[in-house]
């Protein structure tokens, strides 16, 4: 009886492992096709612009709210941790660097990943179960060229743009809190910002955003295409796309941070 259970457990794990490997294989193939159809896909530039618009419009307010409060919280937390050890003139600097290196890209990535990843997966998933993807192929229009390339490219372009925007809002949010409730003068805050602004911090944040955009677009498309079985399948696909985007964003954030700050920018 117990052995039986152990055997079943082992079999289950093995099946899950194979499923997982197959999944990685399919994503790899999709990325391969993405590169293959990149040039022809970009020729329909209108589709890319249209996707950029819908990503921007769909996520803008969310990003504004999230960034504003991220900056505000960063200010409160930093002030609390500084207490008497670190002078408050460093407040602006700490907010600046934590926002542009880490908080801006990652939180924007997670928020947009939830919003855009889900909507891409839902749209393509619906197209899959209503045979619209088949219809495209039957018309000799490759779905990767027509659907995937515009979405992934638009995510890759839009994410860094939104991160720049989110950074500015977050720093502003920190500013408001610092001046109104912590008692740092506007002048001091801005001096802190200026003194500790390094371009490589900004670049590393934007590089992260670039990858996060790729992850969001690719996961949305992958799970959209993998949808099976009606409305329920579409719901499942959106959930999976969001979970996969968020997990991969956090993992790749670590990997990128490690590479950037231990090797490339280490000197």
């Amino acid at each position: 009886m117990q052995e039986d259970l152990a055997l079943r457990g082992a079999r289950y794990l093995r099946r899950r492992a194979f499923d997982w490997i197959a999944e990685v294989g399919r994503v790899t193939l999709l990325i391969g096709e993405l590169f293959r159809f990149l040039a022809p896909g970009l020729r329909s530039f209108g589709l890319v612009i249209q996707q950029m618009g819908s990503i921007g419009v769909g996520s803008l307010w969310l990003v504004v709210v999230v960034s504003l409060f991220t900056g505000a919280v960063a200010a409160v937390q930093a002030a609390y941790q500084f207490s008497t050890v670190v002078p408050l003139k460093f407040l602006g600097a700490v907010i600046l660097r934590s926002v542009i290196i880490e908080l801006g890209p990652v939180l924007t990535g997670l928020v947009v990943g939830g919003r855009v990843g889900a909507s891409i997966a839902a749209e393509l998933g619906t197209m899959k179960v209503t045979e619209q993807i088949d219809a495209l192929r039957a018309m000799a229009i490759h779905p990767v060229r027509y659907l995937v390339v515009p979405r992934v490219v638009a995510s890759i372009v839009m994410l860094p743009i939104m991160v720049v925007f989110a950074n500015a809002i977050a720093i502003f949010g920190g500013f408001v809190v610092a001046v109104t409730s912590i008692g740092v003068s506007a002048h001091t805050y801005v001096i802190g910002l200026k003194q500790f602004f390094y371009l490589k911090d900004l670049y590393s944040g934007l590089l992260k955003a670039f990858f996060f955009g790729g992850i969001i677009g690719t996961m949305g498309c992958h799970y959209g295409f993998a949808t099976e079985g009606g409305a329920e399948g579409v719901g499942l696909a959106t959930t999976r796309a969001v979970v996969a985007s968020c997990v991969l964003i956090l993992i790749s954030d670590y990997v990128l941070a490690h590479m950037l700050f231990r090797f490339i920018f280490a000197s």
């Binding site: 619906t126 197209m127 209503t130 045979e131 619209q132 088949d134 219809a135 495209l136 192929r137 039957a138 018309m139 000799a140 490759h142």
Partner: peptide, 18 residues
Amino acid sequence: DEVRKRFGMLFQGAALFD
């Protein structure tokens, strides 16, 4: 795709791009 260009297909649910 070259073969498909000579074909037309009407899908069961019409499969219009919504």
